[in-house]
Design a protein around this nucleic acid. Structure first.
Lengths: 184, 184
DNA sequence: ATTGCCTATGCAACTCGTTGCATAGCAGGA
DNA sequence: TCCTGCTATGCAACGAGTTGCATAGGCAAT
């Protein structure tokens, strides 16, 4: 339901084609909202039919034509309405937590390499966030409103990764202790 | 794909009917894996057909009959296989982050009450976690392997809520600053 | 008495999201 | 030269998840 709104935000920040949006979702935005190009194309067509976005065909040489979308006034006001709507239950799917509890019925040691892989992924993501922060927000005392809001979201991502790394270390210590206590 | 595995873990911890599972998912397990009764009934039937779980009809007086499921050996070994499979991309859908970035194109003050509501929800959940910890793990020095693993997952939930509360305070401070700087 | 809620299971229809595949021209490397 | 990969859009089929509704008896309160 909110994919439309995520696309609107992205188009308000910068107009672009479906393909460009898909790449943005793979990179920056994808860290808090994932979407494949299929979904994006489908939703863009619906949004164009509803007048939320306007499309313009752009011929390019050396590559296929593209349709550049930008947010229309109806889209902007739909976004404002959505902003004022309450809540969302935030459905969580934490597969690793299921695996950790599942390890009680199998060998805890079998999970260690999996958790280590997760740890590496989160460490790499944290490094990317910190690098992106330095690149995009070199002067934290001179941010406009849009940048302030982007940065507070980024801070959330950074803190989430730090917390997750600490927790994964805790998980690893627990698994190793259990593996040492009762070797299979 | 992993709903089967979450159900297996729950049945290994304690056999139960579809209805009971649905309630467990609403409560404890639902904090890291959500599911409605519809999904659970459907998946249970498939799992029974695959021999992953065994069902037993139990007549009750004063209430409808129920089918009590328990994990079968084939289910236990499917779970062990799954435990050894690598990764999952962990698709994230963080609606509040989209809203925060959307606020740049509307009135940041309009988001404040929404964020405050979220903050209250997370504070309540943290209190529930801490209460549950005291109830279920009164003596942290005398845990068996299963409880150790349950507790490390709970610690993750507690740390996540603490981090989220701190971040939401950061978000609120930012929104209030922006609202004061440029009143609508 | 009637209303509403709880246990317990299930069907049908729908939306959302994923996967595999197709097209089509251009660029770069083995 | 062939193969791979990138830009750019799209169809078709499937699977996962949600929503509304149905059944059906018992309990408790109004």
């Amino acid at each position: 339901m909110a994919l439309e709104h995520a696309i609107l935000v992205s188009l308000l920040e910068q107009p672009g084609s479906g393909y460009e949006l898909a790449r943005r979702f793979d990179r920056s935005i994808g860290r808090f909202w994932t979407a494949t190009h299929q979904q994006i194309y489908r939703v863009l067509r619906r949004m164009e039919a509803d007048g939320w976005v306007a499309a313009q065909e752009v011929a390019q040489d050396g590559r296929p034509d593209k349709k550049v979308y930008s947010a229309a006034e109806a889209g902007r006001s739909a976004l404002a309405d959505w902003l004022r709507e309450p809540v969302e239950p935030e459905t969580v799917r934490h597969e690793l937590a299921v695996k950790i509890r599942a390890a009680a019925f199998d060998d805890p040691a079998a999970l260690i390499s999996e958790v280590e892989r997760h740890r590496e992924g989160h460490a790499a993501l944290l490094a990317r966030y910190l690098h992106g922060e330095q690149r995009d927000f070199p002067d934290l005392d001179a941010l406009d409103a849009r940048q302030e809001l982007q940065h507070v979201v980024l801070r959330g991502g950074i803190e989430y990764e730090r917390m997750t790394l600490a927790w994964l270390d805790d998980v690893l210590a627990t698994l190793r202790r259990l593996a040492a206590d009762r070797p299979s």
